[in-house]
């Protein structure tokens, strides 16, 4: 029969969902800023595999000549992004939730099994944990990326006042490139994340909104032949 199991604490759900529009707006305003000096590409010599960004992209989203607007949004929402991230990290540390999230010795082996399973190479089902190795690595990485965005962002926001930071990150131009690469990382994370959420299904998605997951437990014994001696034992068994 079905049973409700608490999965995501309320605070985590708020941090998660607040981050979604804030990061989207940070990326949007970041693109408006980037347009004014759009020098990055993937390629070598005269060969360009990927241009950041093609003119058609700018045309489609009306990106051009909005540097001032982009900066104004970026330097307001940076506070929300930073605060939300710090509260999230603080909450996971104090609540002990970090133990579920930070990779441990077994995470990388578990991650490998999960990848083989998700690619259909291994058939046996995976052990059930709140977060598997891939998730632990991905979710911890994305938090570290967030910290990286704050640091590289500060380095290009205040390159004179925080010259030590800018210099440590390789100088002004490198810090800007690192800030950009991290953002590409979020977009890639987002694509995989959405694919996995769709794959995992409704029960998993609902847990991020309502907090609980429904699990199938074996139906209780037909009739209690003997009264349960300890209430705890039945909880543990379920």
């Amino acid at each position: 029969m079905k049973k409700l199991v608490e999965k995501h604490p309320l605070a985590i759900r708020w941090f998660h969902w607040v981050n979604f529009p804030v990061l989207a707006l940070m990326i949007w305003s970041g693109i408006l800023i980037y347009w004014a000096n759009d020098v990055y590409r993937v390629g070598w010599g005269d060969t360009t595999l990927l241009q950041f960004f093609p003119q058609s992209f700018y045309d489609a989203f009306h990106v051009d000549h909005k540097l001032a607007q982009g900066m104004s949004w970026h330097f307001v929402l940076m506070w929300v992004f930073a605060l939300n991230g710090l509260l999230y990290v603080g909450y996971t540390l104090i609540s002990g939730e970090w133990r579920e999230l930070v990779p441990n010795r077994g995470s990388f082996a578990s991650a490998w099994r999960t990848i083989l399973h998700d690619l259909g190479i291994r058939k046996e089902s995976l052990p059930v944990h709140k977060f598997n190795g891939v998730q632990q690595i991905a979710y911890t990485s994305v938090v570290l990326m967030g910290a990286g965005s704050l640091l590289t962002g500060l380095a290009i926001y205040k390159p004179t006042q925080l010259a030590w930071l800018t210099t440590a990150l390789g100088g002004y131009e490198w810090a800007r490139a690192e800030h950009f690469i991290l953002t590409i990382g979020y977009v890639l994370f987002f694509v995989v994340h959405i694919a996995q959420v769709v794959r995992a299904g409704w029960n998993n998605f609902r847990a991020m909104v309502a907090g609980f997951e429904v699990v199938e437990v074996p139906a209780p014994a037909p009739a209690p032949l003997q009264p349960t001696t300890s209430p705890d034992s039945s909880v543990n068994a379920s």
Partner: peptide, 28 residues
């Protein structure tokens, strides 16, 4: 937990379904 064991399975199932609906509705 012990209560649910004493309930007939059908009643327990209905209660769980109701709880799922109630909490989902509220959260969404």
């Amino acid at each position: 937990m012990n209560n649910s064991v004493k309930m007939p399975p059908s009643a327990g199932k209905a209660a769980v379904e109701q709880e799922i609906r109630r909490r989902s509705r509220r959260s969404f």
